[in-house]
């Protein structure tokens, strides 16, 4: 029983059996054409004003492109799902990195309106000091 299960599972599941899992040429060319098209879309949507959704739209198009690369060029659609889990885990940890950092950054002035603001508003002092003309009280 266990033996039968073991042989069975080794022949199925993740396309990398004894014989390589070769995708048809049309799949690669199709994905490539879609990526070129979506690159044009990337530029086109940047000309459009979606208001506050601008960045979201740009990232959405990039993520569709990324998904095509990962699923077909990197074979994740056909490969062992463990690799997909590793990739998604890295993205999970990126979100754990981003979320508290951004919450912290944007709630500092709620705790201390004056100090909180100076922490990320770098002020113009750094940029001004690069200038040749010393204008200390410009703004």
């Amino acid at each position: 029983m266990t033996q039968a299960n073991a042989t069975h599972s080794s022949n199925h599941g993740d396309g990398h059996g004894d014989e390589p899992h070769v995708l048809p040429m049309q799949v690669y060319l199709g994905v490539w054409a879609a990526l070129v098209f979506l690159t044009i879309v990337t530029v086109a949507v940047s000309r459009f004003d979606f208001g506050s959704a601008n960045t979201f739209v740009a990232l959405l198009v990039a993520t569709i492109k990324g998904a095509l690369v990962v699923l077909y060029f990197m074979h994740l659609r056909y490969d062992n799902k463990l690799y997909l889990i590793i990739l998604l885990a890295s993205l999970l940890f990126v979100s754990i990195f981003f979320t508290p950092t951004l919450i912290d950054l944007h709630t500092r002035d709620a705790l201390d309106p004056i100090k909180g603001r100076t922490m990320y508003k770098l002020s113009t002092s750094k940029a001004k000091s690069q200038d040749a003309a010393p204008a200390p009280a410009a703004h």
């Binding site: 690159t39 990337t42 740009a58 990232l59 990039a62 990324g66 690369v69 060029f73």
Partner: peptide, 16 residues
């Protein structure tokens, strides 16, 4: 490497 550039292109060159 390609995947990272796919994100860098809109984020750096096409800031909305």
């Amino acid at each position: 490497v390609d995947l990272i550039w796919i994100y860098l292109f809109p984020l750096l060159y096409l800031v909305g």
